[in-house]
Every structure is written in structure tokens, then in C-alpha cells.
Amino acid sequence: MRYPGLRMSRGVEHGLFWAAVVALLIAHMFGFGQGQRPLLGGWVPLDLAYRVAWITAAAVLVFWMTGRLWPDNE
């Protein structure tokens, strides 16, 4: 395992990770209407920008998960 002897730390890290997942799932429920506001950069709808930011945050979680939480054992 990656963290021999650090059971609590591992547990806390898993807890933080899953809390972040829940936060992202909650954020997934929201979105942005464009209304009369201009498109970002002249072409990007606000809701699309919000989703790309959401995906970026999800990508960070995926790197966290694969780098630190997912064991290398086969």
C-alpha cells in the first residue's frame, strides 16, 4: 500500500475526497442562464463555461484519485 502505518491519514484523505465528490455532485445540479448577458469571449455561453470549469474540477479529483487513493497492487 502507499501509506503503510498511516491508516488515519488515509481515512481522512478518503473522507475529504468523497466530500469533494459530493460537493461536485451538488454543483452539477446548478447552472447558468444566459439572459441578456454577452457570450464569454464573444462565443462561449455562460452555462458551457460553468460546465467546463466543473469538468476541470472533476479532472483534478480524478488525478487525486488515481495518484493517491487507488492502490498500485495487482
Partner: peptide, 14 residues
Amino acid sequence: GVAVFGLNAAIVVL
């Protein structure tokens, strides 16, 4: 429209 991206693409990434 654009809401289709949020409906389908984003959540799959996670």
C-alpha cells in the same frame, strides 16, 4: 441548446 452539455457530458467525466 447548451443545457444538453451539462445534462450529458460533465457528469460522465467524474
